[in-house]
């Protein structure tokens, strides 16, 4: 009949209208700032720097090798390595900046890092009134503890910790096998950490 489809459609919209008042399945809106959907484990946003232990500065896993800086497609990473009084490189970043206004969260820095020092964060509420300075994250903004990494990506962090422990063990064995000096068990992980192979 002419007009039948219109009536069917109007019944459907009326069902939606009244259903949204009593049926939670129909009323699916999450009122964002007050209500939140828990983030998926694989959710990722901008990168952050992992540090072990309690000291933000000393615990950083980063050795300022600049691989991520070179690999970064939008070139949003800027690294200056630490040098001692004689100008010798110190395996520690003096400056580590990420410009999140250009970062595209591609995760390439994470994949190329040999030290598991840089990982993806889940922080997304980074809007700011000052787009020039507040979107350039410095070392102290980026450094976050390993516990935080465990909190946001538990599976991945456990795997990384196991891998690091294994590498540390191998390194200790190699040192002991070389017999150059009596091997002392590593007191603090990142200081003893060396790339395998």
């Amino acid at each position: 009949m002419l007009g039948e489809g219109i009536i069917k459609g109007m019944v459907e919209t009326a069902r939606n209208f009244f259903g949204s008042y009593h049926d939670p399945a129909r009323f699916v809106t999450i009122q964002y700032p007050e209500q939140r959907v828990p983030l998926k484990e694989n959710n990722r946003n901008f990168p952050f720097l992992v540090f072990d232990g309690a000291d933000t500065e000393k615990g950083l896993r980063c050795v300022a090798c600049k691989i991520c800086e070179k690999e970064c497609p939008p070139q949003c990473i800027y690294i200056v390595p630490e040098r001692d009084a004689h100008g010798k490189l110190q395996k520690h970043p003096k400056i580590f900046d990420i410009d999140i206004s250009t970062c595209m969260s591609c995760q390439i820095c994470v994949e190329v890092c040999p030290f598991d020092a840089i990982k993806m964060d889940q922080e997304f509420e980074l809007s700011t009134g000052d787009r020039f300075s507040n979107l350039l994250l410095h070392k102290q903004d980026l450094a976050k503890p390993n516990d935080y990494y465990h909190k946001i990506h538990p599976t991945e962090a456990t795997l990384v910790d196991a891998q690091l422990a294994k590498e540390r063990q191998l390194a200790a064995q190699r040192k002991a096998g070389a017999g150059a000096a009596p091997a002392s068990p590593p007191k603090h992980a990142p200081e003893k950490l060396v790339p395998v192979g």
């Binding site: 919209t13 939606n16 209208f17 259903g19 949204s20 008042y21 129909r26 009323f27 699916v28 809106t29 009122q31």
Partner: peptide
Amino acid sequence: KGLGRIQNRP
């Protein structure tokens, strides 16, 4: 408000 409810939003 009415259009919102018809489209299942507040």
